[in-house]
Measured scan of single mutants.
Amino acid sequence: GTLHLNGVTVKVPSLEKAIKAAKKFAKKYNLEVQVHGNTVHVH
Rank of each mutant, 00 (worst) to 15 (best):
V40F: 02
A26S: 02
H4A: 05
T9S: 10
L5E: 03
L5A: 05
P13D: 13
K23G: 02
H4K: 09
H41P: 03
H4S: 08
N6M: 15
T2C: 14
V8K: 11
A21F: 13
F25D: 01
V10S: 05
K27L: 07
L3H: 03
I19C: 12
T2Y: 15
I19D: 00
K20L: 11
V8P: 03
G1R: 02
K27M: 07
H4E: 06
K24E: 11
Y29C: 05
G1T: 11
A18K: 01
T9A: 11
V40N: 01
V33H: 00
N6G: 12
V35M: 04
G7S: 08
L5H: 06
N38S: 07
S14I: 08
V8H: 11
K20G: 05
L3Q: 04
P13K: 12
G37Q: 03
V40T: 02
K20A: 13
V10L: 13
E32C: 15
E16N: 08
V42H: 04
T9K: 09
L5Y: 15
K11W: 15
A26M: 07
V33G: 00
N38A: 05
K11S: 10
T2L: 14
L5S: 03
V10K: 05
T2A: 06
K28Q: 07
G1K: 06
A21W: 15
K24Q: 09
E32G: 05
Y29I: 05
K11E: 10
L31R: 00
G37K: 05
F25Q: 01
V10W: 15
V40L: 06
K20P: 00
A18M: 06
A21K: 10
V33A: 01
H4M: 12
V12Y: 15
L3F: 04
E16V: 09
K23R: 12
N30Y: 10
N30F: 09
Y29E: 01
I19K: 02
K17M: 13
L15C: 00
L15K: 01
Q34L: 14
L3D: 01
A18E: 01
L5V: 12
K23L: 13
K28N: 03
H41M: 15
G7A: 05
H41G: 02
T2M: 12
G37N: 06
T39S: 11
K11M: 12
V35G: 02
A21E: 08
A18W: 09
K28P: 01
K28S: 01
A21N: 04
K17R: 09
Q34K: 11
G37D: 05
G7Y: 06
V33R: 00
A22G: 03
V33E: 00
H41N: 08
L31E: 00
H43Y: 14
L3M: 07
Q34M: 12
V35W: 08
K28T: 02
H36T: 13
K23N: 07
A18D: 00
A22E: 00
S14A: 05
S14C: 10
V40D: 02
E16I: 12
L31A: 05
A22S: 01
T39K: 08
K17W: 14
G37S: 05
L15E: 00
L31S: 02
H4N: 09
H36Q: 08
G7W: 12
K11T: 09
K27N: 06
K20H: 09
Y29N: 05
F25S: 01
H41C: 15
A22M: 12
T2V: 13
K28V: 05
K24N: 06
L31Q: 04
K20I: 12
P13Q: 13
G37Y: 05
T39D: 11
V33C: 03
I19G: 00
A21M: 14
S14P: 03
L5I: 15
N6Q: 08
Y29K: 00
T9N: 07
V35Q: 03
Y29T: 01
K11D: 07
S14Q: 06
K28D: 04
T2G: 05
V33W: 07
H43N: 08
K27Y: 03
K20W: 08
G7E: 03
E32R: 06
A22Y: 06
A26P: 00
G1V: 15
Q34N: 06
H43I: 14
V8L: 13
L15F: 07
N30C: 14
Q34D: 05
V12T: 07
A26I: 07
E16Q: 10
E32K: 11
V40W: 02
L15R: 01
E16D: 12
N30M: 08
K23P: 00
K20D: 09
H43K: 11
Y29M: 03
K24Y: 12
L15Y: 05
K24C: 14
V10P: 01
H36F: 11
L31T: 03
H43D: 04
H36D: 11
V8S: 05
G1Y: 15
L15I: 11
T9F: 12
A21Q: 07
L3I: 12
A22Q: 00
K17Y: 13
T39H: 15
H41I: 14
K23V: 10
A18S: 02
V42M: 11
Q34T: 14
G7N: 09
K24H: 09
S14V: 04
H4Y: 12
N30A: 06
T2P: 04
G1P: 14
Y29H: 11
L15V: 09
T39C: 15
H4Q: 08
N6V: 11
N30R: 05
L5P: 02
V33N: 00
H41E: 13
A22V: 15
V42L: 13
P13N: 11
G7M: 08
H36I: 14
A21R: 07
K28W: 10
A18I: 07
G37R: 04
E16H: 10
V8W: 14
L3W: 04
N38I: 13
E32L: 12
A21H: 07
G7L: 08
G37E: 04
L31D: 00
A21T: 06
K27Q: 12
K24A: 13
V35N: 00
T2I: 15
N6D: 05
K17I: 13
K11P: 08
T39R: 10
V40A: 04
G1C: 14
F25T: 01
H43A: 08
I19F: 03
Q34G: 04
V35A: 04
K11N: 10
H36R: 08
S14N: 13
V12E: 01
G7V: 10
L5C: 15
P13M: 09
Y29V: 05
V10N: 03
E32A: 09
V8Q: 06
K20E: 12
V35H: 02
L15S: 01
V12P: 01
V10Q: 04
L31V: 10
N38R: 03
G7K: 07
N38E: 06
N30T: 04
I19N: 01
K23T: 09
N38W: 15
L3T: 03
E16G: 10
A26F: 07
K27G: 04
T39N: 09
N38T: 10
K17T: 09
G7P: 03
G1F: 15
H41Y: 15
Y29R: 00
E32S: 12
L15N: 01
G1I: 15
H36A: 07
T2R: 07
L5T: 03
A22K: 00
K20Y: 08
N6T: 06
V33M: 06
N30Q: 06
E32M: 11
V12K: 04
V10R: 04
N30W: 11
K17N: 10
T39Y: 11
G1Q: 11
S14L: 07
V12M: 14
G37H: 06
F25Y: 13
A26Y: 03
V33T: 01
S14D: 13
N38V: 08
K11F: 13
L31F: 08
H43M: 10
N30L: 07
F25L: 11
L15Q: 00
K20M: 09
V40K: 02
H43R: 09
K28R: 09
K11C: 15
A18H: 00
E32Q: 13
Q34S: 13
V42Y: 06
L31M: 11
I19H: 00
F25A: 06
H43W: 14
V42P: 02
Y29P: 00
A26R: 01
V33D: 00
G1A: 15
K17A: 14
G37L: 06
K20T: 09
T39L: 09
A18T: 04
N30E: 06
H36L: 13
L31H: 02
H4L: 12
S14R: 06
N38C: 00
H36S: 08
V8E: 02
A18L: 12
V35Y: 04
V12R: 03
H41D: 05
V35C: 14
K27H: 06
V42D: 00
A21Y: 14
L3N: 02
K17H: 11
E32H: 12
H43S: 12
A22H: 00
L31W: 08
E32T: 14
K23A: 04
V42G: 03
V40H: 03
H36C: 04
A26D: 01
I19P: 00
P13A: 13
A26H: 01
Q34R: 12
V8C: 14
E32W: 10
G37F: 06
V33P: 01
K24M: 09
I19Q: 01
E16P: 05
N6K: 06
N30P: 04
K27T: 07
A22L: 15
L5G: 02
K23D: 02
